[in-house]
Nucleic acid binder design. Structure first.
Length: 263
DNA sequence: ATGGCTTCGGTTCGAAGA
């Protein structure tokens, strides 16, 4: 089974590129982030013509996540409050969470808040959001041991996940508090699928649009698949496909593809 | 180098992204 994650920065702008990629990479599940469209306006038809089922949680202008699956998913829910208490309703105003189960595997598709800059209100929101995410995943783990949490985390955990022309100290996406918040989540029993196969640095999933960052390979690895132990054992490969980043008018992120051994 | 570039909304620049 192949599970891909891709922040496409507007599904309407990127529709042709995503469909072309999906034709060449017929993954079982494609997790999209930053779809930037309400569900009623999501361009469904080209995906459905390829035989995919769509599960959406979108909003106007910002954020938005989608699960695009070859097989029908079960137990699909959106947001934190479907799993946690309704007292957290404010956390679902921004559409950043969708989950569903395929072949006994729960896939959680996330768009973690960016956080703007360390010390801002958005940074504080990111840290609080990660705390809620931890409770959410803790809840899911009670009923399902096999979980793949993937998406745009907006966090690079190690120096080797970041090009060397940036000083990570207190940089957004690399600051100690957000890294610790992510480590606190992983400590519940998740491991980075990419690092099962690739230990060296220099592999990135996001390059700034500005300053010709892609051409100079000034990137960050911030798009991840985190797996519970049995799934981690089943992981056969985890590849960043930089090809779409080379196209004209690309997303600033590249897709990342996880392959799991069939059971 | 508080900029560089891209998207959205709703009119054409400001906000947000990372």
């Amino acid at each position: 089974m192949k599970i891909a994650t891709w922040n496409i920065n507007s599904v309407r702008i990127r529709l042709e590129q995503v469909i072309d990629w999906l034709k060449q990479n017929p993954v079982d599940v494609l997790c999209l982030q930053e779809t930037k469209v309400i569900d009623a306006d999501f361009p469904r038809s080209l995906f459905e013509e390829l035989g995919y089922h769509l599960y959406l949680s979108g909003q106007k202008s910002y954020n938005g996540v989608a699960l695009i699956s070859r097989k029908q998913l079960v137990d699909v829910t959106t947001g934190f409050t479907a799993i946690l208490s309704d007292q957290l309703l404010e956390w679902d105003e921004q559409k950043r969470v969708i989950t569903g189960v395929i072949d006994g595997i729960r896939i959680v598709n996330l768009y973690v808040p960016n956080g703007a800059a360390v010390g801002t209100e958005k940074y504080a929101y990111k840290l609080r959001w990660l705390k809620v995410l931890r409770e959410y995943l803790k809840c899911l783990l009670l009923s399902q041991p096999d979980i793949c949490v993937c998406g745009d985390f907006n966090i690079a955990l190690e120096a080797k996940d970041i090009h060397d022309q940036v000083s990570p100290d207190n940089h957004i996406m690399a600051s100690e508090l957000e890294r610790q918040a992510l480590r606190d989540i992983l400590a519940m029993g998740f491991a980075d699928a990419f690092r099962k196969f690739t230990t060296e640095g220099g592999h990135y999933s996001w390059w700034d649009y500005r300053a010709a960052a892609f051409r100079r390979n000034l990137g960050w690895r911030i798009d991840h698949h985190y797996l519970t132990p049995a799934l981690y054992e089943r992981a056969k490969s985890c590849i960043i496909d930089a090809t779409p980043r080379k196209l004209t008018q690309p997303s600033d992120h590249a897709p990342v593809i996880l392959e799991l051994e069939d059971k």
